[in-house]
Design a protein around this nucleic acid. Structure first.
Length: 495
RNA sequence: GGCCAGAUAGCUCAAUGGUAGAGCAGUUGACUUUUAAUCAAUUGGUUCGGGGUUCGAGUCCCCGUCUGGCCA
């Protein structure tokens, strides 16, 4: 190829410039998408291989994406990003006589993947660096990276093009890596307690186990409608019936409801069921779980929120009855004997939006809990003896017919984990579900009730919102910041 | 679902209703230990889409799309 390609003419079109460079590479017989490279070390290893005081280290072979290039004539510094972080490499014309000017300087761009082999040395500013004896272009990037200093800040782009966010924003990388390690640590915890992990269906003919609006879909083969699951509960209980007496699942659930800083249409739930235990046992289980995960992943049981508030997860956790919290907040020791109208009037006085008139009595009270109490529960708190209307799947408290053997674990002003003594009396369970279903009796999961009639062992059950737990452990503000690819509408501006 | 805010170069952002600019990135050149390297020159725009007002619209009005925040 003798005619010089005119990059000047197309220099405004970053994509075209890189396509032209790709064509030039191929014209010389190099296909940058078919090269191989043995990666022997990552950036983190390199620093360990060159202890303080040692000037020259062993040869390493690293690979990653070029995220910074500083060319100074016949020598250049190149930073590459791999799974361990950023590694600096030093390219010189002396060491790369045949390709430094013609290949490296002309055809390698920010964003490209390269492999670099060479001995480690320390620069005069002390940075451990690979002195390139050899390198290869491993994949050509045809699109530019975001701006090197301001990075990527547009929220829509961060979520839509998460890969760019991961390349340029170290905080995002760290947060999402923590998420991965949290899930790993949770699995190990349950395995160590002889729980088995199962996978239950996402497609349900009846969306049970929680009160939420489901997404709907259709099977052509079976010619019937399905719902995407809103909870894992009812199938895991079938596992208990089947004799899997310690069982857990980590799975995506879907709720076709509002989207907010705390709510995503699809999110990840952990549910665990332990036969012959109860909600008290679940208290020990969840506290031990969160403390273990915290120590393993963060190395500490103290976490700091984005606003600097410290949350201490170590030691024992506060335990308080739902009714006591309500009475304390409303300052009314007779709250639970007031009429609904009196409660609504009291809500107005407490600057709460007026509860809707079609609400049930317990919903008015729960509005006080949700709006005025839960957000103040920053340090870990077990809220116990919840009104029975709030969950039809738990056992009623012996000695108090109005409450159930349940706790809601609140941390960081959010409900992190509910747990119950699971209802296993098929007659009582049917009645509770019938009350909940009201006019919509067809929404009762008869197959689940049939399973209960075969006998389910007494059990404690636990649910944890993984996303919220990760928010807690990373100090994130928004649930989208701990989900790799959050749910978004269709792209307004496709390329 | 309601209200408010936003969308301008690849990225981050400017621009009284009056010629759409800057930094980085890109291109060309200088430079063998840089750390947002530096220096010189330089290319680059359907201002989210569609209507309207106006002599004139990135800017004002209406509709739509997407995003963010608050609320239900």
């Amino acid at each position: 190829m003798s005619d010089k390609p005119d990059l000047n003419a197309i220099s405004h079109d970053l994509h075209a410039v890189r396509l032209e460079k790709l064509a030039q590479l191929r014209a010389t017989g190099e296909d940058p998408y078919r090269e191989e490279w043995p990666q022997t070390h990552v950036s983190q290893d390199c620093a360990k291989l060159l202890p303080e005081g040692v000037e020259e280290g062993p040869e390493v072979s690293v690979a990653g994406r070029v995220v910074a290039v500083r060319v100074m004539g016949k020598a250049s510094f190149v930073k590459i990003l791999d799974r361990g972080g950023v590694q600096q490499c030093y390219f010189t014309r002396d060491a790369l006589t045949d390709c430094y000017d013609t290949h490296f300087k002309k055809l390698v761009d920010l964003g490209d993947f390269v492999g670099v082999r060479g001995k480690l040395f320390r620069t005069k500013t002390g940075e451990v660096t690979v002195r390139a004896a050899d390198y290869k272009l491993l994949a050509k990037a045809l699109r530019p990276l975001p701006e090197k200093w301001a990075g990527l800040t547009d929220a829509e782009k961060i979520y839509r093009q998460r890969y760019l966010d991961l390349i340029v924003n170290e905080d995002s990388r760290r947060r999402l890596m923590i998420r991965s390690r949290v899930v790993e640590s949770i699995r190990k915890f349950f395995w160590s307690r002889q729980f088995v992990e199962v996978e239950t269906p996402v497609l349900h003919t009846i969306a049970g186990g929680a009160a939420a609006r489901p997404f709907e879909t259709h099977s052509n083969a079976l010619d019937c409608d399905f719902y995407l699951r809103i909870a894992l509960e009812l199938h895991l209980k079938r596992c208990l019936v089947g004799g899997m007496d310690r069982v857990f699942e980590i799975g995506r659930v879907f709720r076709n409801e509002g989207v907010s800083v705390k709510h995503s249409p699809e999110f990840t739930m952990l549910e665990a069921y332990q036969a012959y235990s109860d909600y008290r046992g679940m208290m020990e289980l969840v506290r031990s779980l969160i403390q273990t995960v915290c120590r393993e992943v963060l190395g500490s049981t103290t976490v700091t929120r984005h606003d600097g508030v410290a949350i201490e997860l170590g030691g024992n956790w506060r335990e308080v009855k739902y009714k006591d919290l309500i009475i304390e907040k409303t300052g009314d020791s007779q709250w639970f004997s007031r009429t609904k109208e009196e409660k609504i009037a009291a809500c107005k006085k407490m600057d709460l939006h007026e509860p809707r008139s079609d609400w049930e009595d317990y919903e008015v009270t729960n509005e006080v809990f949700g709006k005025l109490i839960e957000p103040t529960l920053i340090q870990p708190t077990f809220v116990t003896h919840i009104p029975k209307e709030l969950c039809p799947l738990a056992k009623v408290t012996v000695g108090d017919e109005s409450t159930i053997d349940v706790f809601e674990l609140c941390i960081n002003g959010q409900e992190i984990a509910p747990a119950y003594s699971e209802q296993n009396d098929p007659g009582v369970q049917r009645k509770m579900l019938e009350i909940q279903a009201g006019a919509e009796q067809h929404k009762i999961d008869e197959d689940f009730l049939l399973a209960l009639e075969h006998g389910m062992p007494p059990a404690g059950g636990l649910g944890i919102g993984i996303d919220r737990l990760v928010i807690l452990l990373t100090g994130a503000v928004n649930i989208r910041d701990v989900i790799l690819f959050p749910t978004l509408g269709p792209d307004n501006n496709p390329v």
